[in-house]
Amino acid sequence: MQTLVNVIAANGLVTAFALVGLTVWLSHWLSRVLTHGRIHGSAIAILLGLAAAFWAGKATGGTRGVADIGLLSGLGVMGGGMLRDFGIVSTAFGVQLSELRRAGAIGVVSIFTGVLVAFVAGAAVALTFGYRDAVSITTIGAGAVTYIVGPVTGAAIGASSEVLALSVAAGVVKAVLVMVVTPLVARFIGLNNPQSAMVFGGLLGTTSGVAGGLAATDPRLVPYGAMTATFYTGVGCLLGPSLLYFSVRALV
């Protein structure tokens, strides 16, 4: 037994490959048997991943989900930023430049609209909960943009650690919701072509949420949505501590 544990511990990434393979197989089986293929296997696999992350977070008290369990740390490598970005870029192989160019302008518009709308929505909720200082309202609003924009903005304008934590939590809620809800609503928001996928990526913007949501909807849309989403966090970090903060300060 100890020998087996040693093997697993010494081969983290390989263990992750095997484990994820098993999860994907189980998910496709569940999709076929329980939902007759109505809910895509990938969507179920992502849900199982999130459920495991919740359980692991409760069990370990850590912040990196299953990756905080020593034996399963390889999942952190496999699902970490490096391989995620490597995978996202590879999906662009075979994409037509003409498709990207066609929706380029509306894609840019959607990025700025997405940052602004998410910020206003988050800031409005902060106001409803009784926050009246510009720094806290801005930080929570920025958290609703993405969980990176929140703390970057908050740190730049000197928010309290309690508010920083709230803004990260708001961003994580958004990322998780986008992953889970996208495949369910794709049909109703016309998310079935490259152009609307670019608009979707720009509006929602949270890289992991968009990446997961589109993967569970139709993998062929991933490169288009990822293309715009990847600019979103940068634009958010640019506007958060500057334009958005000054606007809030002028208003309260």
Partner: peptide, 30 residues
């Protein structure tokens, strides 16, 4: 598969434990 591993590494507890404000701010924006 990489995205499945990424999902398993998310800080889901923070999303759930962030309280009503975090939940509403994230959900409303989404």
């Amino acid at each position: 598969p990489i995205i499945v591993a990424m999902a398993a590494g998310q800080n889901v507890v923070a999303a759930v434990d962030g309280g009503l404000l975090a939940l509403l701010a994230g959900a409303f924006a989404t």
